[in-house]
């Protein structure tokens, strides 16, 4: 092989690679993972391990035997999908369901569109929503936190704070009477509450988010705009009637709002490419989330909101283009 290399310019490259981006997200997720292990014990570890293993396995099988393309399981994308899927599942979900969810995530949401970079919807969320619709009972009975430490079977299950509020309000109770049933904001921040694996500790998620921002894996537009929209909308309702609507702080800290805003909506493949588009996208997610949470049938709407807005991304990319240099300017031509 001759050593002289010829190529078009540029002849140097930045140190960013796709692989590194994937692993950066994984590093950012690790504090939340540790919290979930602390809270749910071995169950969390098991769910994550099964989800990751089956995602990588399905990716390998599909690429090798169905598509007959190059095997790319080492690029970290299947690994990331597995982790994100696990973070959206309750820790006591039967193992076969996790495997089904992984198959849907990798097989239907990713590979059928053409693999990495071609999927329209966030694969992990498609897997999660598929499971949620197919097995609503198992997907919504979360083991309550503290009681379950170290236990694998016979866990005590209960609803999430969002579920408690939703159900309570529908039964005709008010926020004040529900106050004793929902955890305090401090508990929510630290993650001592019921819910899916990754939605536990707001603090751990924020920590990871800051890491991603520093490493420039994500830009601030999506998380800030999405959380801002949720705060604004729920804030207005809360100010109008604090008895019927929960506080914005509660909405931000519970459920998948933070996990969604920092890790799911910012997924590079399924989010818009321009900063303008990102803002539209994030505001859309925020609005849909609040509408589902306050008026919909489900207590939680982040996953649906992200998937719905994912579908709009091609449209957003077409209509919110960057401003071309030298177009629509006021500079006088002499």
């Amino acid at each position: 092989m001759p050593t002289t290399i010829i190529s078009a310019s540029p002849h140097v490259h930045s140190s960013r690679t796709s692989k590194r981006l994937m692993y950066d997200v994984l590093i950012a997720l690790s504090p939340a993972f540790l919290v979930s292990i602390y809270v749910f014990g071995i169950g969390a570890l098991l769910v994550t391990a099964v989800a990751v293993a089956s995602c990588i396995f399905f990716e390998f099988v599909i690429q090798k035997y169905l598509l007959k393309t190059a095997i790319t399981i080492t690029d970290g994308s299947a690994l990331l999908t597995g982790v994100l899927l696990a973070f959206n599942l309750p820790s006591n979900l039967p193992i076969w369901m996790i495997i089904v969810g992984s198959l849907v995530a990798i097989g239907i949401a990713k590979s059928s569109f053409g693999g990495l970079g071609f999927n329209i919807f966030n694969p992990a969320l498609v897997g999660r929503v598929f499971l949620l619709i197919s097995f609503p009972v198992q997907m919504t009975s979360w083991p309550t936190a503290i009681e379950n430490q170290g236990k694998l079977v016979d866990a005590v299950t209960g609803a999430t704070p969002l579920g408690i509020v939703k159900e309570g309000l529908q039964m005709g109770e008010t926020m004040t009477s529900l106050a004793s049933q929902i955890p305090s904001n401090m508990d929510l921040l630290l993650g001592i509450t019921g819910g899916s694996l990754g939605e536990m500790s707001a603090l751990a998620l924020l920590l990871g988010g800051i890491y991603l921002l520093i490493r420039k894996v994500i830009s601030w537009h999506i998380p800030i705009m999405m959380l801002g929209t949720i705060t604004l909308m729920t804030g207005i309702f809360w100010l109008v009637n604090p008895d019927l609507y929960a506080s914005p702080m509660f909405h931000i800290l519970t459920g998948g709002a933070l996990l969604g805003a920092i890790y799911m909506a910012t997924d590079l493949v399924t989010s818009p490419m321009t900063r303008k588009g990102m803002v539209i996208f994030a505001v859309g997610i925020g609005v849909i989330t609040v509408v589902i949470r306050l008026f919909g049938a489900y207590p939680e709407g982040v996953s649906f909101a992200i998937l719905i807005m994912n579908a709009f991304v091609p449209l957003i990319n077409t209509y919110f283009k960057p401003r071309r240099f030298g177009s629509k300017i006021k500079t006088k031509i002499v």
């Binding site: 092989m1 001759p2 002289t4 290399i5 010829i6 078009a8």
Partner: peptide
């Protein structure tokens, strides 16, 4: 024999545009 190594898209037209050949 090849005297240089081309790195770029697998396209004759592009490679011809960039240089004269390997």
């Amino acid at each position: 024999p090849k005297t240089t190594q081309f790195q770029g898209p697998d396209s004759c037209a592009i490679s011809a545009m960039i240089f004269s050949g390997e």
